[in-house]
């Protein structure tokens, strides 16, 4: 996993609520058996028409907007557990998704792939979207160590919450599996000593 510490970038606005993982990556593109190349089909049906021509009105096809930060409406990533959604977002080049809240499974998948799901208040979300509307190349700085989000245009700095363990993982590029493997003895002890009445 690529470590994440600090990022300054412009942002891509997607002010739609309840963006589900079927939009992020439709099921028919889940057939790959590796983790690579999903970025090509990120938001496939919003990005391309039936003839596979780019839809001009979709933000990812608009050259005005670019950057490694995606700013989306509430409940981003709801629906399916497909990690392909996080792979597609990462493969496209985003490192941070900003929203007022994330669906649980997507949030976990993003963190397991070095993508920061950054939760801001609904008010701040509106403010960020306004800044981008006024200046599409407006820069934002995310400092994970300090847990700060800075709007470089207004100079406003806000803090964000993140689980300490997950923060350490992101900064160092660790995956949960590294930690779980280090707990092997405790896991085996649990197996030896548990009383499993369900005979699971």
């Amino acid at each position: 996993m690529t470590p994440f510490t600090k990022l300054t970038s412009s942002a891509v606005p997607l002010p739609i609520e309840d963006v589900d993982t079927d939009q992020i990556i439709p099921a028919r593109f889940l057939k790959a058996v590796t983790r690579d190349g999903f970025g090509e089909n990120l938001f496939r049906d919003w990005r391309y028409d039936k003839e596979d021509q780019p839809k001009e009105d979709f933000v990812l096809n608009n050259p005005t907007y670019s950057g490694q930060i995606l700013v989306a409406g509430a409940n981003f990533g709801c629906g399916s557990s497909r990690e392909h959604a996080a792979w597609a977002i990462g493969d496209f080049g985003f490192r941070v998704v900003v929203s007022s809240y994330f669906a649980d499974i997507f949030r976990g998948n993003a963190l397991n792939n070095g993508i920061l799901p950054l939760v801001v208040s609904p008010t701040l979300l509106d403010e960020i979207l306004q800044t981008i509307e006024q200046n599409p190349v407006a820069a934002f700085t995310i400092n994970l160590e300090a847990q700060t989000f800075k709007n470089e245009t207004t100079g406003t700095v806000s803090t964000f919450d993140i689980d300490n363990y997950k923060k350490t993982c992101l900064i160092n590029g660790y995956d949960d599996i590294d930690y779980l493997l280090s707990q092997g003895e405790l896991i085996e002890k649990f197996e030896r000593e548990r009383v499993d009445f369900s005979l699971a």
């Binding site: 976990g108 363990y165 599996i177």
Partner: peptide, 22 residues
């Protein structure tokens, strides 16, 4: 509950997941 593929691998390797209690 449903999990992502990284977690599928974690369960395969350790029979465990690291979770925040809901």
């Amino acid at each position: 509950f449903g999990i992502g593929t990284s977690q599928v691998e974690q369960v395969m390797a350790t029979q465990c997941l690291l979770l925040t209690p809901p």
